[in-house]
Amino acid sequence: MSEFAGAIDFILHERESQTGGTQVGGQQLLPLLWDHLQLTGVSVAVAVAIAVPLALWLGHVGRGELLATSVANVGRAVPSLALIAFFVAYLGVGFTNVTLALVLLAIPPILTNTYVGVRQADRDAVDAARGMGMTGAQIVRRVELPLALPLVMGGIRTSVVNVIATATIAPLAGVATLGDPIIAAGVYGTEGRLGAAILVALLAVAAEALFALLQREVTPRGLSSTRTAKTSRRLKPA
């Protein structure tokens, strides 16, 4: 277990790198953590901006069911490493390219969950809204979106955890995240690698817990929470 003790020490205190010259661990991990969070935040935000409006529209007009459901299946089958490698080989390294790859990874769960959420919105409620004279846009914004929100959040939660996991291999594409000590173990040493693995695992669990809480917060009163648990299909993060 001394390895774990060494890994904790690496997280808490700076030390000289294996190659000499620079300090690694401790404070040096903060910018890596920041870049990890930034990469995750930007990727998921872009994915939300694309997937939520698209799925709301598809769900509202009741079209594209095959697209909305099969996108999740295809997304699950594409290995995250292959996706990152594909972007590196064809577009090159850098923050923008990694973000693009992570956006592609983050879209499927959000798209599918939002679509399912809208389709499952109580038809009586939608009909009532129409009877009250609401326009299509009003129905989407004031009835279907609020009713779908728990599932939308569930999709975002899945994507955030997925992206946090995959951002770990971003150093392969030239973006230094918490995965840097894992990819460049020659510099950080094996204790550094283990320390980074601990941090990434904690980060994923913390994000999962945070978004589970948010998901509960946005569930309208009267909607049972069991429904969201059952219908939100989670994709395994990388």
């Binding site: 774990f4 693995a197 990434v200 695992a201 994923a204 669990v205 990388a238």
Partner: peptide, 17 residues
């Protein structure tokens, strides 16, 4: 569910010791 949340790349290293 907690097991499922842990990123695989982290677990592959966490198990090695």
């Amino acid at each position: 569910g907690v097991l499922y949340t842990l990123p695989s790349i982290a677990v592959f290293f966490l198990l090695q010791p």
